[in-house]
Design a protein around this nucleic acid. Sequence first.
DNA 1: ACCACAGTATGGTCAGACCATACGTCGCCA
DNA 2: TGGCGACGTATGGTCTGACCATACTGTGGT
Lengths: 232, 232
Amino acid sequence: MGWEPVRRTRAFEDVIAQIERRIADDGLTVGDRLPGERQLAEQLQVSRASVREAMRVLETLGVISSQAGRGPDAGAVLTSRPAGALADLLRLHVGLSSLSMREVAETRMMIEQWAVRHAAGRASPEQLERLREAIGRMERAATPEEFVLHDAEFHLTVAGLSGNRLLAATMQALRVTVRTYAVQAVHRLGTTDLLMDDHRKIYEAIAAGDPEAAATAIAGHLARAYPGDGPS
Amino acid sequence: MGWEPVRRTRAFEDVIAQIERRIADDGLTVGDRLPGERQLAEQLQVSRASVREAMRVLETLGVISSQAGRGPDAGAVLTSRPAGALADLLRLHVGLSSLSMREVAETRMMIEQWAVRHAAGRASPEQLERLREAIGRMERAATPEEFVLHDAEFHLTVAGLSGNRLLAATMQALRVTVRTYAVQAVHRLGTTDLLMDDHRKIYEAIAAGDPEAAATAIAGHLARAYPGDGPS
DNA sequence: ACCACAGTATGGTCAGACCATACGTCGCCA
DNA sequence: TGGCGACGTATGGTCTGACCATACTGTGGT
């Protein structure tokens, strides 16, 4: 027969569901505060431990941020940090070998190609300026670590050109995940001249409004950076 | 001066870090069991509550799965379910309006275009067979809910063609997120004839090995499905 | 050989306590 | 009157110890 297993909901799942419902019904939004853990526990008729497990889940998903003490900033506040959650997710699954660096790098290629294709010729002067500044800082970088830092800034700005926060957050998480590899790869290359040329080509294609040239430049750059696992 | 705030790590964060280290060092992999909560608490010199908060985080990220009782399947077992974590993340952030359906739909378009471009002409006979079966089931679907179910099967198979588990998992999460919209949109359309034509075109382009035709077909299909927020 | 029952290890939940933190408030003193 | 220091208090963070529900494991009887 069509029997369904009794879906036992754990207390903390119920807490999450009710918080979610209040977000939808009461129109709670980023910046709003949730009731304290003790109050929430009493209102929902569960123990504080269950409330805390729910908080931990929501915090992991980048939806709340908790602060001890007293005052306007204390307690659990609704936030929006999907990138942190995605980064944790990628790090753990890569560590478990349930995702490979190849897949991560490939996803990155996809996002950046999409972003530059849709941004070529449409980037604002401020965005172009940010790209130029990042390139400038890369040129002046003294160490591989510093270079990678500004390289990340460049590529995150590129992802931001898509105007899509989900893609931007994913890109940020991907960068965090490959950061160690990136530093090692820059060390290995010795020089960053080739990478700098790539960045300039990418910038010019975007500024010139040539989608295919930008996509090609990105592809070449990432192919150089991930010869078998790489940086930037 | 370059003072950094003392980053006081919470107990459960330390637990996560140590579990992560053991995954890396001891080569733990999917299917392996973690020690029981009580034992872990004693070994790490923290309370069971802190261990449980760490477990909740890892479970949220799709890395472990807990089962009560006794025996080989009981306890916390390492798993790999990134899609569930991604779906939770999307649902909450869309609910908070920190992500829009437009961004979700756009991301979906990007993944599917990438997948078909890279799969055209390279899909295995089994994969093509799965696509044909999904189309067949869509044709025989009696209700919009049923149609959307098999439509999801088709599109997930398409995403799987990329050979990239991260993209496949993301696609799965995106589908879950737009599912309600999809059912409503099919109701609104009244007929599924146009959608069926789209699916056949996509299939043919993949089978024929024509990347650009496949990409165009996908784009047209999704444009039809998301006129302002849609299905399929 | 089979089966029923007690034992036991597991996660799930709860209650209550204490600590650390950071703001609010009150009152003292200049 | 203004400032400033001590105390009060609400917040999250942690711990302890207990009990429940679940599901295997072993044991003993038939």
